[in-house]
Design a protein around this nucleic acid. Structure first.
Lengths: 345, 345
DNA sequence: TTACATATTGTAAACGAGTACATGAAATGT
DNA sequence: ACATTTCATGTACTCGTTTACAATATGTAA
């Protein structure tokens, strides 16, 4: 505390020091072409000398622009979202935006709260992964205020009115299930997740389609919901094993659930990939190094983030075309967890 | 685009609608006790009716306060940091702060850039994990402006002038190495990381201390640096195995490196925990589910985040005591990766 | 009734910048 | 030499709040 606490240097002070008016200094700061070289340099020197720092907050207030964007995700804990965040962040950084982050933990109340906060902070745009059962009102409100919103990863409600970037979950479910069928399985469980979410319904739809195509009848008891956590996956798998006629394979809601399921198997002495086949969803980094390595559906979270950021940027700079829907195609990544031959039936 | 784009409702409009002055409305917004119940309700009603939203940006500008804090970390990809982020985020959320995020990828230039940006955005405080070799100037500058800074996880340079929350890396290194020695190992490599970072030096110090205490001489060739990524760990392990007298155990810079090292082992047909013992550092969630489960040193990233947030909050609300140093004690978590008995010597 | 304390509410000047418009000087054309 | 254009800079108002300070209303004691 030996240094005296400096207060903010204002543009006015810079202007005085350089012997020009504040307006001129402002033009210099913003790199206007209507300023002579000499004046520009005079001002720049004064800025350096006084240690001026631009006040983006004041500037945004006056100019009705905003260089911050809000990013609302479910939780950082899930690598799917931290990858998505990385993608968004990197792209927006490049364009000079600053991101403010919020996590909903799938609570609609928290989501509304976050949206309010972002509104209060004058964000220029929002990228969000909506919570299941989220009401469209709040999001509508943002749009009414001219704040563009890009939805990612999940598509809840009739939100066709917004830009959306995600993957084709139906195709993903189909890919996963087909793969298991090709491996010779006929009793395939769909494990984890919550039927309230659009993602679950889509993946299940793909699952059903693949079954139907192979002439396998859907057995509702093989649809085992759970929290989308490791623990949830573990419990769901245990419930599956307790079934009178247990499955020989499982398509898991996502990789995290799949990890849980595999841990559950190991606990009762079964080996995923040998005693029972497992397929996950997302292809998060960990899935390659799990033991056994997890067969999964690549969902490219980082790419989703990059695209969303890109669309948002365009909206924020005035593009007003129809809402875009960008649906990435998932890819099957075969590893060892699905190599097992069914024991029975 | 059928809805008309609304523009911001101002406090003035609310005041007019309620038939009071703007100042009164302002007091209501901020919950001042000097307002009669009736007026308060009148104003609150008008707010609701007009759809008023508080403009925190304008408010902060005027009041010289700020309810945003900057969080600067190395990368989200490493679960250590995403856990830290989760801790910070949760605590600050509760106190009503909003966090803006930046990642340096260990580039000093990027770090300076981020600090500048945060300055421009009038953050009220900063929590950062400094990059190795970072200059103190920029951070000093923040402090001169009265913006409190809390350092986390890494302690670079002579930064005793700042608040700091981290863990005792020396003790951690000692714990890990001691454990391996107790398992009967005498040739123990220290794998991964970069000697330029304070964390590396501290963990190495603990490693050396444990060796010395056991009467084992330090073999410099067993200090194998690498990038702190999975790939880096893999390469480092391969280099270790090519040594004329390879190690029977490895203490890895962190869990991510340890994963890489274990993958490297598997590639050449060796089994971590049987053919060679591995200990990691951080105890990220994945370490429990890796195969084999990783023995590691728990570093409690989330707890670090929570504490840092707490200290920052106190600083932002006026506490001016001496810089605090909060050093958490690491804990050894024994799992299967370190259970191997050394083959030779 | 007058004076005075007390509880409220209003007035007006900030905060630090952007920007339309006016002004002035220099450069050009005739 | 004068009118006209071009370029650079200054004037003055604005964004939506906070906050000293002044002003009003209400109630109470003398």
């Amino acid at each position: 505390m030996t240094e005296k606490r400096r207060s903010r240097v204002t543009l006015q002070q810079v202007a005085n020091h350089a012997g020009v008016s504040r307006a001129t200094a402002s033009l210099v700061v913003r790199g206007s072409p209507h300023i002579s070289k000499e004046t520009r340099e005079k001002v720049l020197n004064s800025m350096k000398e006084l240690g001026y720092v631009y006040d983006r907050v004041a500037a945004n207030l006056r100019s009705h622009r905003s260089s911050t964007v809000g990013l609302i995700i479910t939780e950082i804990g899930n690598p799917f979202f931290s990858d998505l965040l990385a993608g968004v962040h990197e792209s927006l950084d490049q364009e000079g935006y600053t991101v403010i982050l919020g996590t909903t933990f799938d609570s609609p109340a928290k989501q509304d709260e976050l949206l309010s906060t972002m509104l209060e902070y004058r964000v220029g745009g929002v990228i969000m992964s909506p919570v299941p059962g989220c009401s469209v009102d709040m999001v509508e409100r943002l749009k009414q205020w001219g704040i563009p919103v890009v939805l990612v990863a999940r598509e809840e409600l009739p939100m066709r009115q917004f830009d959306y970037v995600g993957i084709d979950n139906v195709a993903g479910g189909r890919l996963a299930t087909k793969h298991l069928i090709q491996q010779g399985h006929r009793r395939i469980a769909f494990i984890g997740g919550f039927s309230g979410s659009s993602v679950w319904r889509d993946r299940k739809k793909g699952y059903c389609e693949a079954l139907e195509q192979a002439g396998i009848e859907l057995d509702e008891s093989l649809l085992i919901q759970s929290l989308t956590t490791r623990k949830g996956g573990m419990e769901a798998m245990k419930r599956a094993l307790e079934l009178p006629n247990p499955p020989t394979a499982a398509f898991c809601y996502n990789d995290v659930v799949a990890f849980g399921a595999m841990l559950g198997l190991k606990e009762v002495g079964m080996m995923p990939g040998r005693d029972i086949a497992i397929v996950g969803f997302d292809n998060i980094q960990e899935s390659a190094i799990f033991h056994p390595p997890l067969t999964t559906i690549a969902a490219f979270p980082e790419r989703i983030g990059v695209h969303a950021a890109h669309i948002l940027h365009k909206r924020m700079t005035g593009e007003t075309s129809e809402p875009k829907r960008l649906i990435l195609q998932p890819e099957l990544v075969v590893r060892e967890s699905s190599s097992g031959i069914p024991h029975s039936s």
